[in-house]
Structures are given as C-alpha cells and as structure tokens.
C-alpha cells in the first residue's frame, strides 16, 4: 500500500496542480461563453502573452512591480481584444465572431513568434512558490500545493461577486437573456468588458502558476492548456463556474492517470474523447442548464 501511494503520489499531485491551473483558464472560457455564446479561441494565447510579459518585465524590474504589471497588462490585452475583434461583430452571425477569435489567436501567436524569435524562454523563478518541498515520499514545487488553494479562494471570491454585487447580477441577467437585459437598460458593453477583465485576470494568475511549474514559454505553449481548459468548461457545463472548476480538476487528474498507465500518447486524445462523449450523452455538461432553441 505504501509503495502504491509513493509510486502514484507524484501523478496525483501533478494532476491536482495542473487541474487547478486549467480551472483558472476555464473560468475565462465559461464566463465569456455564458454571456456572448463565443468560444474565445484567443484565451489560451492571452494566457501565453501573460507569461511572456512576465519573462520580459522581470528581466528589468523587481518582482513586486513586474507581477502586478503583468496582471494589469494582461487584463488590458483581454479588454483590447474584446473591443477590437469582438465588439464590431456583436450583431454578426456567431460563426463570424468565432472566426474572428481564431484570427486573433493566429495574430497573437505570430506576434509572439516575431517578438521572441520563436525560441523557448525560461520563465523567471518566483520566490517561495518555485521552491521545492517534500510531501510524504514525493518531492515537488510549492506551486503544486499553492495552486489548488489559490484556485479555490479565487473561485469563492468570484462566486460571491457574481451572487452579491450589482455587476454580478447584471452578468447573470445577460447570460440568461442577452436581448431582454439589453432592453432592461443593462449596459451590455460594460458587463462584457468586466467579464473579459475577470477572465484575463484569472488567465494571468493561472499563467504564473502554470509556468512556475513548466518553465519553458513558447508562442504555442498556451494552445493545448487553452483547449483543455475549454474542454473542462464544456465538461462541467458551459456557463457554470463551479462546473468549470470541477471539470478542470477531473481532466487534470485523469490526464495524469493516463500517463501513469503508460498511455502517454493518448493523454491529449483522452481529453477530447471525454469531450465528445459528454457532448453526445449530456451536451449541457455536468452542471449546465438546458438551452432550448427557439424558432
């Protein structure tokens, strides 16, 4: 038994930590989808840009400046993307906005490629969370433990925000019925901006945790975590924040179990297989609400 635990504890720890990081990205997806019905394909790339920001800013500034500045910059980028690429298409068919999202993702990746010269960059070490600790028989980085805790704290705060503040109420209203809430005098654009700001903020935090663990930053580093986080959001029921978080943890842990079993080639494929199974048998996910198509 002890042997079994000591053999498998590292997988479990890796699963939980990566799950928490997916969760932080997934919230951005699920909130945007809940309000705009848009898969924000650029979200994974915003996550990567945050990492590059950190790399470049940390080279010239002390951590206590570069860290908040990275978050501010990421939030600004998220807002800018929304303004430039999604807002003009608000009344266009959904397909057009999605294509625009794909275009933004393509642009951001090429831009990062250009700026960095396409080489992997080392992520700076953030004191304390990058330090190593031993748990039972496994050795790991502090970030592995910090991630799930921080994720849960942030989620609880977010849920409070949505439940108890005015802007939260507006967000709920908009995600329930876009047109009606617009008629009711809710400032749609403001609500959407706040949504993107929150999503980008969490992506920036997620990026710090993720890249403290996996330190190589490349222009496409965020693509896979982004897609997986999206799958997590669908899995948990798109539009539902607790759903996204639980979905993310399940996917993170399942992925590492697959690796432990020696099916490493299929660890990405598994995530997508899970997605398809969910879409077929329970399209609304674990916690999603059923949406009825109106004629």
């Amino acid at each position: 038994m002890t042997e079994f635990i000591s053999a498998n504890l590292p997988y479990l720890l890796a699963g939980i930590s990566v799950g928490g990081q997916y969760a932080l990205i997934a919230i951005g997806y699920t909130m945007v989808y809940g309000i705009l019905r848009l898969i924000n394909f650029a979200h994974g790339d915003i996550f990567t840009v945050a990492a590059y920001c950190m790399v470049y800013m940390n080279a010239t500034m002390p951590l206590y400046i570069s860290l908040p500045l990275t978050i501010v910059f990421t939030v600004a980028l998220g807002l800018a993307v929304e303004r430039v690429a999604y807002k003009p298409l608000r009344d266009a068919p959904r397909m057009s906005i999605m294509i625009s999202a794909i275009g933004v993702s393509y642009l951001l990746q090429n831009l990062m490629w250009y700026v960095t010269g396409g080489l992997a960059q080392q992520y700076p070490t953030i004191p304390w969370i990058s330090s190593t600790i031993s748990i039972y028989t496994a050795t790991t980085k502090m970030v592995t433990l910090v991630t799930p805790v921080l994720t849960l704290v942030l989620v609880v705060l977010l849920v409070q925000l949505i439940k108890h503040t005015k802007i939260g109420m507006a967000m709920r209203a908009v995600s329930r019925d876009f047109e009606t809430s617009r008629l009711m005098g809710i400032k749609i654009n403001g609500v959407i901006s706040v949504t993107f700001a929150i999503g980008s903020f969490l992506a920036a935090v997620g990026s710090m945790l993720y890249f403290s663990n996996y330190t190589a930053v490349t222009p496409t580093a965020g693509a896979m975590p982004g897609l997986k986080a999206f799958v997590a959001a669908v899995f948990g029921g798109i539009g539902s924040i607790p759903g996204a978080v639980i979905g993310a943890f399940i996917i993170g842990i399942a992925e590492n179990i697959i690796k432990a079993l020696g099916w490493t080639a299929f660890s990405d494929a598994f995530t997508f297989a899970l997605l398809i199974v969910i879409l077929i048998f329970k399209p609304t996910g674990l916690f999603g609400e059923a949406v009825h198509e109106k004629v």
Partner: peptide, 18 residues
C-alpha cells in the same frame, strides 16, 4: 449545433492525430 459541432470535430481531429 454550431460551436459544439466545431469543438467536437476539432476534438476528433486531435484524436485522429494521436
């Protein structure tokens, strides 16, 4: 429907690749 179809086909493409 629409974006669910998009993401499911994307998923299948990834599975094929694996």
């Amino acid at each position: 429907k629409s974006d669910y179809l998009a993401i499911a086909t994307l998923g299948f493409a990834e599975i094929i690749r694996a």
